[in-house]
Nucleic acid binder design. Structure first.
Lengths: 196, 196
DNA sequence: TTTTGTTGATTGGTCAGTCAATAAAAAATA
DNA sequence: TATTTTTTATTGACTGACCAATCAACAAAA
C-alpha cells in the first residue's frame, strides 16, 4: 500500500480553507495566514505548495468550476428529454451544494477579481460557454435557433442575477423560489413560441 | 455674490475620481492616494473632507444611486401608459450614462463590498426596492398581483445579471441587445398572460 | 543520507490615517 | 482704509499596522 504524499492533501485542505475564508469575508482580500490557519498549517507552507497567493486563488476558482461541471454532467446524464435537460442544467446552479452563502460569495468575489486577472476572466468565460452550450442542447430541439440562443442568454443572465441578488439577503438562500422564477421565465418563452 | 467654499467642489471631484479609479481597477481596493491624485489634491485632503475611506466609498455609492434615481424619475415622468412605464424603467438601467464599463464595474464592486458593509447593503436594498416598486407601477395594471410581482423580480434579476455578465466582456457595452433581451422576456410574460 | 514536510523569524513594501505647519481668504478691529 | 485675528484650505512627512513572500533551519520519512 503506497503511502500518499502530503501534497494533494494539503492542496485540497488549503483550497477548502480558501473557499471558507472567502465566503466568510465575502471577498478575495483574505490573507494567506488566515487561509493557512484554517487549514491548520503555517502560511509558509501555503506558499510552498502554491507559490503565490494568485495561484492559490486561481486553483480555488478552478476547483469551484470543476465541481459545478461535475454536478452538471451528472444531472444532464440523468435527463432523458430536451425539456428535462434544460431544467436539469438550471437546477444544478441552485443545488444544495452550489447555492450556499459561502459558494455564492466566492463566485461573486471571483467575478469582480476577473476584471483584474486575465486568467480568472478566461476561466469564467469557459464556465459561461459551457452553461450556454448545455442549455442549447436542450433548447434547440424546442425552439428555432435565434430564439433558443436568446433564451439561453436570458436564462444564464437570470442565474447570475439571482446569485448576485441572493448575496444581498441574509438568511438561508431560497433555492426553490429561485428555480421557480427561472422555470417560469422559460415556460413563458416556450409557450410564446407554440402560439405562432 | 457669495463665494462658495471649496468643500462641495472637492467632495464632488473626489467622488468623481473615486468612480473613475474604481472603474479602471474594477474593484474597491483603490488607494486614497490614487483617488486624491486623480482629483488633483493630496490624500490628506481627502481624509480631511471624508474622514475615512469607507465614508468616501459610501458617498460614492450614494452618488451613483442618486444619479440613477434622478434618471429614473425623469424617464418615468415621460412615460404615459403602464406599458411604457415598464419599458422606461428598464431602459434607464442601460442608458448611455449608466451602462458604461466604468459605472458597471463600480456597481459590481459595491455589490461585493456590501457583504462586508451593512451600510452599503442597506443602500443597495433601497435601490432594489425602488426598482421593484417602479416596475410594479407599470406591471400591476397589466398582470394579476402574483404574476406582476414575479415578473418584476425576474426583470430585476435579469438587469443585475446582464450587468455582471457585461463586466466579463471587453469592448463597449451593447445596451441595445441587453434591452432587447429583457423586453423579450417581458413580452413573453405578457403574452403568456393574455392566453388564459 | 537524501528527499519531503514544515515552521518561525524576517524583510520589504503598501497604505490608511494623523499631525503639525503653512498659506490664503474672511472677518473683525482700529 | 489698514491692521490684526480667525477661519478655511491644503500639504509633506510620519506612524503603525498589515501582509505577501523568502529563507534558513529543523524534523521526519524513505
Amino acid at each position: 500500500m503506497p503511502k500518499l504524499g502530503m501534497e494533494p492533501v494539503r492542496r485540497k485542505a488549503l483550497i477548502d480553507a480558501a473557499i471558507s475564508a472567502i465566503g466568510e469575508r465575502g471577498s478575495l482580500d483574505v490573507t494567506m495566514s488566515d487561509i493557512a490557519g484554517r487549514a491548520g498549517v503555517s502560511s509558509a507552507l501555503a506558499h510552498h505548495y502554491f507559490g503565490a497567493k494568485d495561484e492559490l486563488l486561481l486553483a480555488t476558482m478552478r476547483h469551484l468550476l470543476a465541481e459545478l461541471n461535475f454536478d452538471m454532467r451528472q444531472a444532464l446524464a440523468a435527463a432523458s428529454s430536451p425539456r428535462t435537460r434544460i431544467s436539469a442544467a438550471i437546477a444544478v446552479n441552485f443545488s444544495e451544494k452550489q447555492f450556499r452563502a459561502e459558494t455564492i460569495a466566492a463566485w461573486l468575489a471571483f467575478y469582480v477579481e476577473a476584471q483584474k486577472s486575465a486568467a480568472l476572466r478566461r476561466l469564467l468565460r469557459v464556465y459561461a460557454r459551457r452553461l450556454h452550450s448545455n442549455l442549447m442542447s436542450g433548447l434547440t430541439p424546442l425552439l428555432p435557433q435565434p430564439q433558443a440562443d436568446r433564451a439561453a442568454e436570458a436564462i444564464a443572465a437570470l442565474i447570475d442575477g439571482l446569485y448576485i441578488r441572493r448575496a444581498l439577503k441574509n438568511g438561508a438562500p431560497d433555492a426553490a423560489s429561485a428555480i421557480a422564477l427561472v422555470e417560469d421565465c422559460l415556460a413563458s418563452k416556450l409557450a410564446d413560441q407554440k402560439m405562432h
